[in-house]
Amino acid sequence: MSLLRPDLAVIADHIPDGARVLDVGCGDGALLSDIRLRKQADVRGLEIDPANVAAAVGRGLPVVQGDADTDLGYYPDKSFDFAILSQTLQTTRRPDKVVEELLRIGKQAFVSFPNFAHWRGRLSLLWGGRMPVTRLLPERWYDTPNIHHLTIDDFRALVRERGWTIDAQWFLNDERTTGSANANLFAEHAVFLLHA
């Protein structure tokens, strides 16, 4: 029914009606627009790219231009039910601090990211000896915005280390959800719902 990117569709489906939501790195506001309409969510967005912000505000969304690395500190504690960081974690300068901020601002946080330990990437590095360029990670090492490559197991380790709690997790392969068995090898994307 919705034309959202698969990880966003997972998140949208799990936002309860009327929730207060901050989407960090909201792009042109596709997710916010969807949950405002379908879930009557009270939405806010933060986005770094001015053209995306203009597009989002042009569709009537309250979106602020800013940087996840520097601008989250200005949001009050627990001012949202959910803070969302979708496919942005790997582009931030300090991913750990960004998640920490998400969990301070939101009662819960959705974090989605591409899994760099997917078997295709592993093979490409193992046999080709080159940094993987795949359908879902199409940029080359020098022009990719992804500056902190991580795997599902890396993220789980960070969660453990910081004492955060995972409330739910979803894994995506070929745009469908897949089981959590060997997710670190077989999932292209992961979506985590967590709280501090």
Partner: peptide
Amino acid sequence: HAAGREVSFV
């Protein structure tokens, strides 16, 4: 933001 108001900025 600190005042909890709804704001857009570009």
